[in-house]
């Protein structure tokens, strides 16, 4: 089997990127803040919107995983990649060859949609913009506790500087890590963490039901099991006029999209995602998720069988 990517290579690359660029993929800051161009924020507010950067990273994650799959021989076309790595060594950012403006636009819209929903409810909030720091969740998941702690303290310091008392989060991973893990790593961390589903009132965004499309609802693991938001997620989807159907493993018993190990073992990750697609596709050709990791991983694995949408794309 050709060139299986070693754990240390992935880990080192992520850590180095985080230290240099404040995000694990080594993206330039403007790619993470592009969505906010022309929008106004109240940075004097004690409430901030925290994107965590995950939605913005999706096209680059897709490109990275595609590259890793080529390199590891899971899909053809890895020879050029091997040569590149021999010359420059492993860095996840060597893989972003094919990201198009259309792709980045799709994921930026998800964030601006949330922005509009918050505004519509009259919520006042700031945004850290180019000072926003990634939460470090991937380091925590890899067991890199020291490096994670370093990032956590940086972000906590930044929030303190800006006198942020409350963060509105938009993905389950950042929400969980900030709410449940940060207090264990940052002394006195007391920023209130609120996921948008906990904050927004579903009935304020009511739309007529479109019964022509059925969405198989996929519960993101952390959203269902750690944040206990399965019901709110459904309430939201319903009020947005979506007709939803329940797959075999759902709510607290949901089946993971495979995404969390996509950078460790992309081929295993993809097999898991394909299994989930089979379960979801039994109910129709559209799937609903509410997590950037699920959106990326299921989006890639299911693309021949179904369209995968994030809840925030449906508003």
């Amino acid at each position: 089997m050709p060139n299986l990517v070693a754990l240390d290579d992935v880990a080192k690359s992520l850590v180095n990127n985080l230290r240099r660029f404040r995000n694990p993929l080594g993206l330039s800051i403007d790619k993470l803040t592009e969505w906010s161009k022309g929008l106004s924020f109240d940075n004097a507010s004690d409430t901030y919107l925290y994107t965590g950067g995950l939605y913005q990273m999706i096209p680059y994650i897709n490109s990275l995983i595609d590259g890793m799959n080529r390199l590891e021989g899971s899909i053809p076309g890895g020879i050029g990649m091997v040569k590149l790595l021999e010359r420059f060594g492993f860095n996840v950012s060597s893989f972003y060859s094919s990201v198009t403006a259309k792709e980045t636009a799709r994921y930026n819209v998800i964030i601006t949609n949330l922005y509009s929903l918050l505004k519509k409810e009259g919520i006042n909030f700031g945004y850290l913009g180019d000072e926003e720091i990634y939460s470090g969740v991937i380091l925590y998941d890899l067991g890199l506790d020291d490096e994670f702690g370093e990032i956590a303290r940086q972000l906590a310091k930044k929030l303190k500087e800006k006198r942020v008392a409350k963060l509105i989060t938009m993905d389950p991973h950042s929400t969980f890590i900030l709410r449940s893990i940060y207090p264990k790593y940052v002394e006195g961390f007391d920023v209130e963490i609120v996921h948008y589903m906990e904050l927004l009132k579903a009935d304020k965004h009511k739309r007529d039901k479109d019964t022509s499309k059925i969405f198989s609802i996929h519960d993101p693991c952390l959203l269902a099991r750690n944040l206990d938001l399965s019901q709110r997620y459904r309430d939201f989807a319903e009020s947005l006029g979506l007709k939803i159907a329940e797959p075999l493993m759902s709510k607290r018993h949901t089946y993971c999209c495979g995404g969390p190990i996509e950078n460790i073992a992309p081929r295993v990750s993809n097999s898991i995602a394909k299994n989930r697609c089979t379960q979801l596709a039994k109910l129709g050709s559209n799937a609903l998720v509410a997590c950037p990791i699920c959106l990326s991983n299921l989006g890639r694995a299911c693309k021949d069988r179904m369209n995968v949408y994030d809840l925030l794309e449906m508003v």
């Binding site: 099991r225 018993h253 995404g259």
Partner: peptide
């Protein structure tokens, strides 16, 4: 072996 865990917590649930 541990690196292949998804941390999806399906196990904890049951």
């Amino acid at each position: 072996l541990s690196y292949f865990c998804l941390s999806c917590n399906a196990c904890n649930e049951v």
